[in-house]
Design a protein around this nucleic acid. Structure first.
Lengths: 338, 338
DNA sequence: CTGAAAGCGCTAACAT
DNA sequence: ATGTTAGCGCTTTCAG
């Protein structure tokens, strides 16, 4: 049984002081005048016995945990889990680990999670915020803790953020449906007031308004029983609908089922477009048109902003990035006759 | 700016000692004879000022971080991210958070991750092990650290594990295809030696052997370029194949594309069944037959085993659970003529 | 019933 | 160039 080593053991074995070991460990050998030879000796020994400093002790001492708290709506969602993976990739090379929490868009859960992250002394916060936590986020910022929000933001909240251009994405998808000859485009969205949803709605509305068409919006409650969502859509989708834009992947999942129940043929009777792409969409028959979010870019931008704050703390004016989406046109939105 | 409070501040404000506060905090008021009144007073004050103990200090002192390390193949995979979500749900009510790491089945990455988790002093390990880390896991166990492996295990490794009955799942899927009149069933699997893959293969082989049919196995390398995997399958799938069992979701994703390129009609020219279900499968046309894993059960069992170890340490004989899979029969595996 | 004090492993100012 | 030491915030033993 490998006994747990401490820096003191290392120092004793090596007949040097803890300080020296500590300096070497933290790459501060040179600046503190530890000889190159000594540095190599320490490094070699550490390597040999597989010593790694105790993060708890380090953390207690330095106030930094090398841990990032990531709060999303649902880690099992394809969008957020892809994001989680990329954050992990980028942050792990910088020595950070991630602890995550799913809010289900619940304010109380989110508030609690922020406290939990605080207890864990996370060094930074990556947050896809549910409604109602503006104040909590402001407190983090007031305490100089690095916070980046992404995917959506909150009204009147000044914070670094990385968003996609939801308006543009929905606008283009709608435009595309119109261009392909569809006339009665229904938006299926959530009842939620979240900004990204509002923006998607606005994109859709603006496009239809320009085209002089009437908008039809079907609002579904978040996370009821799956079956309820399906029947809700099935029952309430306007009968003259000839195209549907689903505002989220989750809605598409239920909505496609509803459309199958109605036996509407895609794309001849009804066209489909979905906000948020998914690997499986290209395999559907017909394949499904989607607004793809730039996952890679979102993640690198978030981490960039975060690392900047982590490395040189200090209040800069919050920056807000808007990344473009990309419309992936597939078969579900183009009539065969065309 | 809310100043960070320490237990000492609380004690001073309240004019009691840190000890008393600590006892109350840890629910040890009664057993240490702190008066009910005092307990209430402390609790009320803590609540009021929003004090939460510093985990780093607690951790340093107690050696416990209230953090679990979860190592999976890829957190962005639908299976693992669903699992991650459920672990989170169950563990968070017990006060644990999860840090995760994706191995991509890479031995070196996994070894490193175990070290990282150790530094972070995680209290327990939940591991979907890649090959070659038996020794590392044995070390954890030797050091009395709670380890549970799931999804797969490693040869000659004695450790608590929660697996599904891969053999049975593949056997039944194969049986089902035979029963539906398909005669040339090809298994598309990974080149990987992993036990769960081997078991699936055995299930398939045993079933065909019983039926006196010839087996055809197509092995694909893990995580090449997606396009390579697709063309690999397209080129090498036996021409007389009339049914395909994909050993994983990932293979199905590429294999379905390959089949589309070949313009084989499902289910008339070729039937499809996939190991591992996915929400989208019921929406495919035709909907796709799949072997569903009991996610919920896997998670509760893993956490159960883990919490037992966490709560009363000590060496018990390792337990190994095998959970049944469930064949979800859909349209991709039944000829219309039937 | 309550308080004083040791010490977990580490970092970094200060001493030598 | 290297060593000594205080103390981060907490838990827990032991004394009062």
């Amino acid at each position: 049984m490998k006994k747990k080593l401490s820096i003191r053991d290392i120092a004793e074995q090596l007949k040097v002081s803890k300080t020296t070991v500590s300096f070497v460990l933290n790459g501060k050998a040179a600046e503190n005048g530890v000889s190159k030879a000594m540095e190599r000796r320490v490094l070699a020994y550490i390597e040999k016995v597989g010593y790694r400093p105790n993060r708890m002790a380090q953390g207690l001492r330095t106030g930094r945990s090398k841990t990032i708290g990531m709060m999303v709506e649902d880690i099992s969602d394809a969008f957020f889990s892809s994001i989680a993976r990329k954050f992990e990739e980028i942050l792990s090379v910088k020595g950070y680990r991630i602890i995550y929490g799913s809010t289900e868009n619940n304010t109380a859960v989110a508030k609690d999670l922020i406290q939990v992250f605080r207890n864990h002394q996370v060094d930074g916060y990556i947050i896809a915020p549910p409604p109602g936590i503006e104040e909590d986020i402001r407190e983090l910022i007031a305490d100089e803790l690095p916070v980046i929000v992404f995917d959506r933001t909150l009204p009147n909240l000044e914070v670094d953020s990385v968003l996609v251009d939801n308006h543009q994405g929905a606008y283009r998808a709608t435009r595309h449906l119109l261009d392909n000859g569809y006339k009665h485009i229904t938006l299926v969205t959530l009842t939620s007031e979240q900004i990204q949803m509002r923006e998607r709605e606005r994109g859709y509305l603006d496009c239809l308004a320009e085209a002089g068409k009437r908008a039809k919006i079907l609002r579904i409650k978040y996370h009821e029983q799956r079956e309820k969502a399906v029947s809700d859509i099935e029952k309430n989708i306007p009968a003259d609908t000839d195209a549907v834009l689903f505002a989220t992947n989750y809605l598409a999942e239920n909505g496609l089922e509803a459309i199958a129940m109605r036996r509407w043929n895609i794309p001849d009777q009804v066209a489909i477009a979905v906000f948020d792409d998914c690997n499986w969409f290209k395999l559907f028959k017909p394949s499904i048109t989607a607004v793809a979010q730039p996952l890679e870019a979102i993640c690198t931008e978030v981490v960039d902003l975060l690392l900047q704050k982590l490395e040189h703390a200090g209040h800069k004016a919050p920056r807000s990035l808007h990344l473009p989406t990309h419309l992936v046109i597939r078969d579900s939105s183009q009539q065969r006759s065309q």
